[in-house]
Nucleic acid binder design. Structure first.
Length: 472
RNA sequence: UCCCCUAUAGCUCAAUCGGUAGAGCGGGCGGCUGUUAACCGCCAGGUUACUGGUUCAAGUCCAGUUGGGGGAGCCA
């Protein structure tokens, strides 16, 4: 008989074909329970699925007393034996071990940071190198992977090309927040020009460079040649944001489509979210079940509802009217509602959670609160921008139709006192075969929060970077 | 950056008005059991985040520092 070696998730997915097979299981011990009937139950996880496999170790194995009885959480093992139907409750399949080899001991079980009990997420953040061995963080990691794969599948199936926009950017024109400088200059001896300013000409790139805050401007150039493109990669913001929804390093999905308007853009965003959540519901039932049981009771229903429901389309101006009507009926907001203001968190929450109860696509914002590149509407007061607000997290998508008319773009840049020379290549797109185009940014971690019900964004990325924290 | 809360055993938390620092889990040892975050007994485990102050006496009160959390702003 041949011996099979497969991820535990594969065995659980098809127990019928696994039973009766000789198998090798490699993984880490979660728990051990001993029976005086002459055997030990060792739960072993290889991370391939939510549940560990139960390895039944009889005391006839040669190292039973010397090693098996000393196994603690975290030990790495290789188990050989036969896959059999379980005699106990709680699992259909288990490994009847014929041998178990301890590859790595936990040198001091008393201080092993991941004990078989509930830990606080705050504590586990300080153990980021080991926290993925817990149920919650293993599940988050698998969900994160599943959603990332689903994003690529969605775009690939629709003939979008994935564009690798740069991480280091020479442009200082993105305007999406504070940037991290990239430099090889000696901080203790910074070269200066004769008028006392930093001499960037002596830096690595011969100019000032930063980590990207968005791939949008770069990916627009590819959209104006390949028609349908997207970026999916890390972005960086040096904002001093201390909230459960912000990271200094996060991942963003930014599609950009040529010959497209705002309505097309919003539909693409809605289709994307529905598609990736549909895939998640199919592929990670085990992990979602855990999130529903232990993290957020309604997370599966929320995903199922989102996949079915149409997103509400609402003009910014109508949103303001709804908020003012709510005020008239006695709803109290901390910040006053008036046309022209940016919506506060409390306003977004009211619209998506209280008024509509579904994701809301809010469109056509006043130009004064939006970026220069967003297309000016015919009313000259608003721009073709849209945000998608989701219950529980607020803004999950921000997008717009881009200004394709050079004269209007220049006028907007002048209004906002931007230096046009710095945007020469961006303006070139409007000089050579310009075309209406649109795109949006979807925060990947916020998407994971929405799917899992995890409360803090620091717990849905492996090694979170936040102000004063880059320990791992 | 602003407001509020918070820091006690490896972990999760107690400790009344300022008066001898305790439990559960985890760990070690033993018992019991085809067990399921098992159960029963015993044992070990502490410079109460740090610095300073008030007091006969500080885990407890005050000030500062650092870490953590929640909310706001910025945004994805």
């Amino acid at each position: 008989m041949s011996t099979i070696e497969r991820p535990i998730g594969r065995l659980f997915a098809d127990p019928a074909s696994a039973i009766g097979q000789k198998a090798i299981i490699k993984g880490w011990v979660r728990t051990r329970r001993d029976s005086k009937a002459g055997l030990s139950f060792v739960h072993v996880s290889d991370g391939s699925c939510f549940d560990p496999i139960q390895v039944v170790v009889p005391n006839s194995v040669t190292n039973y007393h010397a090693e098996v009885l000393r196994l603690t959480a975290g030990c790495s093992v290789i188990c050989r034996g036969e896959l059999v139907p379980s005699q106990g409750k709680g699992q259909a399949l288990e490994l009847q071990a014929e041998s178990i080899e301890v590859v790595g001991w936990v040198e001091d079980p008393d201080t092993y940071p991941i004990q078989p009990k509930q830990h606080s997420f705050e504590y586990l953040r300080e153990q980021a190198h080991l926290r993925v061995r817990t149920n919650t963080f293993g599940a988050v990691a698998r969900v994160r992977h599943c959603l990332a794969q689903a994003v690529h599948r969605f775009f690939h199936a629709r003939d979008f090309y994935w564009v690798h926009t740069p991480i280091i950017t020479g442009s200082d024109c993105e305007g999406a927040g504070q940037m991290f400088r990239v430099s090889t200059l000696d901080h203790l001896n910074i070269p200066r020009t004769h008028d006392g300013k930093v001499d960037w000409d002596q830096d690595f790139f011969g100019r000032e460079t930063n980590l990207t805050v968005s791939g949008q401007l770069n990916v627009e150039t590819y959209a104006c040649a390949l028609s349908r493109v997207y970026t999916f990669g890390p972005t960086f913001r040096a904002e001093n944001s201390n909230t459960s929804r912000h990271l200094a390093e996060f991942w963003m999905i930014e599609p950009e489509i040529a010959f497209a308007d705002l309505a097309t853009d919003a539909q693409l965003a809605e289709d994307l979210l529905k598609s990736i959540f549909t895939d998640l519901l199919h592929e990670r039932q085990d992990d979602l079940k855990f999130f529903a049981e232990r993290i957020d009771k309604g997370c599966i229903e929320r995903l199922e509802a989102l996949v079915k429901a149409n997103f509400e389309r609402m003009d910014y101006t109508d949103g303001i009217k709804h908020l003012q009507a709510a005020e008239a009926k006695g709803v109290k907001f901390e910040f006053p509602v008036e046309w022209g203001m940016d919506l506060q968190s409390e306003h977004e929450r009211y619209l998506t959670e209280t008024l509509v109860g579904r994701p809301v696509v809010l469109m056509n914002y006043p130009k004064g609160i939006k970026a220069f590149y967003m297309r000016l509407n015919d009313d000259e007061r608003t721009v073709a921008a849209m945000d998608i607000l989701a219950p529980g997290i607020g803004e999950i998508v921000g997008g717009s139709q881009r200004e394709e008319r050079l004269d209007v773009l220049d006028r907007r840049m002048d209004e906002m006192h931007l230096e046009k020379a710095a945007y020469w290549w961006y303006r070139d797109l409007r000089r050579y075969g310009t075309v209406p185009h649109a795109g949006f940014g979807l925060g990947f971690e916020r998407t994971i929060i929405y799917a899992t019900g995890m409360a803090n964004i620091r717990d849905v990325i492996p090694f979170p970077r936040t102000p004063r924290n880059a320990a791992f």
